[in-house]
């Protein structure tokens, strides 16, 4: 169970442990909020969550999001919710270059050290598309898969890229966030395109981020 009620209902339970889930969508669609809620729900349940992001401190990150009432007030202090910079694990790779096996091994090793030291059970990597080249998605997923498995850790990879390409194809799950336009209204939407090991709905849902977390309702169709 992710603890995100609407998402768990759509997935028919939750995300299998150690899965790698790509959360993708354009700017302002709620990707980071969803990833943070995933970590915060874990922290509320005593599971350590880690966000890898260039956003800065935990305080800076949380100030830009709804004040989730379920995030324990001492989660940052206790280390069950923390943020580290991208460069502590990954080195940026220019578009068009490939990730050589040595670089991937180094990344995986750094990640393993961090996850095992803090007993991280939930990981989110924000802006993963900026860290790996378009063609390197499969190799990247392959490199971190064993590390996540070993640590019993489930990961959200947050990307502003689309749902096509090597990264979505290699991930265990793909959640697409976007906007549905209807007569000039823009509704924030979520669709689960794939989630291995679950019998999930493929319908589009309208979402809203509130202090109680992400709320979900089916997109109305307006009859036959």
């Amino acid at each position: 169970m992710t603890g995100i009620e609407g998402l768990d209902n759509i997935l028919g339970g939750g995300i299998p442990t150690s899965s790698i889930v790509l959360v993708c969508g354009g700017t302002g669609t709620g990707k980071t909020a969803m990833a943070v809620e995933f970590l915060a729900r874990g922290a509320a349940n005593g599971e350590t969550g880690l966000l890898i992001s260039d956003i800065g401190s935990e305080e800076r990150l949380l100030s830009g999001l709804p004040s989730f009432t379920f995030l324990p007030s001492d989660a940052v202090k206790k280390g069950t919710f923390s943020v580290i910079g991208f460069n502590e694990i990954f080195s940026k790779v220019d578009e068009g270059t490939t990730l050589d096996p040595a670089a991937l091994e180094k990344m995986a090793s750094s990640l393993d050290k961090v996850l095992s030291a803090a007993k991280v059970k939930r990981l989110a990597i924000d802006g993963v598309d900026a860290a790996i080249p378009e063609s390197g998605g499969r190799a990247f997923v392959g490199a971190i898969k064993d590390v996540l498995q070993k640590n019993g850790c489930t990961a959200f990879l947050v990307s502003s890229g689309g749902s096509e390409g090597s990264l979505p194809s290699a991930a265990d799950g793909v959640i697409v966030l976007g906007d549905a336009e209807r007569n000039g209204d823009f509704l924030r939407t979520m669709q689960v395109l794939k989630m291995r090991g679950t019998g999930h709905s493929r319908a589009k849902y309208v979402i809203d981020f509130t202090p109680c977390g992400m709320l979900t309702t089916p997109l109305l169709k307006g009859g036959p």
Partner: peptide, 16 residues
């Protein structure tokens, strides 16, 4: 809400 035509958002706000 921006408009009375954002019906799904009305559902979500009632839920909230």
């Amino acid at each position: 809400l921006e408009s009375p035509s954002m019906l799904e958002n009305i559902l979500l706000k009632v839920e909230y």
